[in-house]
Simulated assay, not measured.
Amino acid sequence: MNISDEILANPILHELQNLLENQTAKGIAKYPNTVNVDDYSLSGWIKHAQEETLDKLVYLTCMKVKATEMELKIDKLLSIARFYAHPQTYAWIDDKSRYIPSDIEDDKGNKARKVLEELGYESY
């Protein structure tokens, strides 16, 4: 398999190739040419890299916030799933609380609907 075939076969490499092509097209549309080593001095390239790195840190911080929000939602969904999922003697909503089967029957899905609504999802 040659490099082009490998890039086409690998979804990650293919996505990176598409990103590079799209970014290059944007650069050509905005500037008269692609990257040129003589566009900046060494200190200019370092400054430019620092600025890009700071932008990357902003993006990474945003992604971290989103990941934390998603983890909290997943934890809530898992806790309510545990409440309803246990088929026998006890069901756990967390590691501390136990509910007997009649608690689950009496609840009639209210805990699940409440969690879904808190997370911004439509309940049925």
Rank of each mutant, 00 (worst) to 15 (best):
N2E: 10
I3C: 01
I3D: 05
D5H: 07
E6F: 11
E6K: 10
I7W: 09
N10E: 10
I12G: 00
I12F: 15
E15Q: 08
L16C: 09
Q17T: 03
Q17K: 15
L19A: 05
L20E: 12
L20S: 11
Q23P: 00
Q23D: 06
T24C: 05
K26G: 00
K26T: 01
I28H: 07
A29S: 13
A29D: 10
Y31L: 15
Y31R: 12
N33T: 13
N36Y: 07
V37P: 00
D38E: 15
D38I: 08
D38P: 00
Y40W: 08
Y40N: 12
Y40H: 14
S41D: 15
S41A: 11
L42F: 09
G44E: 05
G44N: 06
G44I: 04
K47L: 12
K47T: 15
H48T: 07
A49Y: 11
A49V: 06
Q50F: 06
E51H: 03
E52C: 02
L54V: 08
L54H: 06
K56E: 12
K56I: 10
L57G: 05
V58N: 06
Y59S: 08
L60E: 14
L60G: 02
T61K: 11
T61A: 12
T61D: 09
C62A: 14
M63E: 12
M63Y: 03
K64W: 03
V65A: 04
V65W: 03
K66Q: 15
A67C: 03
T68P: 00
T68M: 02
E71M: 11
L72W: 01
K73G: 02
I74L: 14
D75Y: 07
D75V: 04
L78G: 01
L78A: 09
R82G: 14
F83P: 01
A85L: 09
H86K: 06
Q88A: 09
Q88S: 12
T89K: 14
A91V: 04
I93H: 05
I93M: 05
I93Y: 11
K96D: 13
K96M: 08
K96G: 02
Y99V: 11
D103R: 04
I104P: 05
E105P: 01
E105F: 14
D106Y: 07
D107K: 06
G109E: 07
N110I: 15
K111Q: 09
A112K: 10
R113H: 02
R113W: 00
K114A: 08
K114P: 00
K114C: 01
K114T: 07
V115E: 01
V115H: 02
V115D: 02
E117Q: 07
E118A: 07
E118K: 04
G120C: 02
G120V: 02
G120P: 03
Y121W: 03
E122M: 06
S123E: 05
